[in-house]
Amino acid sequence: MPQDRPPVAGPRLIARHLSRAFGGRKVVQDLSLSVLPGQVTCLLGPSGCGKSTTLRMIAGVERADEGEVLIDGTLVEGPGLHLPPEKRSVGLMFQDFALFPHLTVADNVAFGLKADKAAKAARVAELLERVNLSGFGPKHPHQLSGGEQQRVALARALAPRPKVMLMDEPFSGLDNRLRDGIRDTTLEILKEEGAAVVLVTHEPDEAMRMADEIVLMRAGQMVQMGAPYNVYNAPVDKAAAAFFSDINVIRGVSRGALTETPFGAFLTPGHADGGKVEIVIRPQHLKIDFDRAGRGPNPTPQDGTPARGTVTRARYLGRESLVDFRMDFDGSILTASVPGVFLPKAGTALWLMIRRDRCFVFPAR
């Protein structure tokens, strides 16, 4: 079991107004976050948005142009101050694992430990057992699978009991079959250790699976921050919604806080009268009205107005089928996700409805 830590009052990690520029271009702009003990915060966004640079500033590998970093209330980065990584009590994990090939598994795990021989051996044995690698101590990295190397890298990073664990795409080198199980094992151990965890990823599924809090980044800035449920179900804009899944977009004009669409009128308060809006809905919330198939629309107050589309393509993805429709009202393509197997032929006309409570309305850009 992990050694008990003294309780920490408040966040274990605080980053305030971090900024960094390269060649006059700001890669990170005014980013702030805080992470509690045992909390996992994911920096999520496309390649080049500043995720890894943020992580490197927190680690001390990169110097911040502006801002501060505090670990357990102690300033480690700020104006005139830049502590190196080894003095910050941070653990680092990268996608290439960075194991020393000439050292055994046990020696890799013990590398960063400052203790006597017996204490080192006990800590190494404890961690190898917790990552399900008991008995692997004498082996060398080349004798291990990718998943086993990842677990050795985790054990090595955790060995000195860091206060903050920083992980940059640590699972991207693993195949999909192994990835989920190793993520779950890693998450369980990190929670037990009580470190504040910052994980960089460009995969929304990984962030949703592992994070207590997601920081969505774009062009060096924080776009949205919150629990996975909130970031997914209350995106701040169309691009944020589209980052997590495919989306359908229905365009219209707001008049008197209402926007008329082929699916009926939508409430659009807060949008300028005469302003163009985009109504965003995910494929799983676009419903095929099987009851009305072939009979035409017969709307009820509960489900709104159905609109007709013609199937252009259908494909089966295992758990669901995706069906593309060319809509009668404007020729646009909308995609519906249907659980299980549903593969109508191209040219089939069907009526569609949308879940109004699952729609997002944004000003058109």
Score class of each variant (00 low, 15 high):
260 E>C: 10
145 S>E: 14
76 V>C: 04
90 V>W: 07
245 S>L: 11
164 V>R: 07
308 R>M: 13
113 L>Y: 09
325 F>Y: 06
152 V>K: 04
297 P>N: 00
354 I>F: 01
108 N>D: 04
105 V>I: 03
56 R>F: 10
345 K>Y: 03
236 V>W: 00
360 F>S: 11
346 A>H: 11
37 P>G: 11
153 A>H: 06
287 K>V: 12
230 N>I: 08
207 A>E: 02
6 P>N: 04
152 V>L: 02
49 C>Q: 12
61 V>P: 01
171 F>N: 08
328 D>R: 07
134 S>H: 12
327 M>N: 07
104 T>N: 13
174 L>F: 01
127 L>Q: 12
351 W>T: 01
334 L>E: 11
14 I>A: 03
359 C>T: 08
54 T>C: 14
143 Q>K: 10
159 A>K: 09
138 P>G: 14
109 V>S: 13
86 E>R: 05
221 Q>S: 10
170 P>Q: 03
160 P>N: 00
107 D>R: 15
82 H>L: 06
111 F>W: 10
167 M>F: 11
309 G>S: 09
340 G>R: 00
65 D>F: 04
35 V>D: 00
275 G>Y: 05
104 T>D: 13
148 E>R: 06
362 F>D: 05
362 F>K: 04
145 S>F: 04
167 M>E: 12
55 L>M: 14
285 H>R: 04
195 A>T: 12
298 N>L: 07
320 E>C: 12
23 G>A: 12
78 G>L: 01
210 M>T: 09
117 K>Y: 03
36 L>K: 07
80 G>M: 15
261 T>P: 08
182 I>E: 05
27 V>T: 13
38 G>I: 02
35 V>T: 07
75 L>G: 03
178 L>P: 14
292 R>P: 00
112 G>E: 15
23 G>E: 08
168 D>P: 02
37 P>V: 04
266 F>K: 03
225 M>C: 03
66 E>Q: 13
336 A>L: 05
290 F>K: 14
333 I>R: 11
208 M>Q: 11
280 V>P: 09
279 I>F: 13
127 L>W: 02
263 F>Q: 04
250 I>C: 00
113 L>G: 15
164 V>D: 02
275 G>W: 02
300 T>H: 10
154 L>P: 12
235 P>K: 01
151 R>T: 13
58 I>P: 10
147 G>E: 13
36 L>V: 05
176 N>T: 11
183 R>N: 07
174 L>K: 05
364 A>D: 00
281 I>R: 03
262 P>D: 03
75 L>F: 01
33 L>W: 04
276 K>Q: 01
189 I>Q: 09
214 I>S: 09
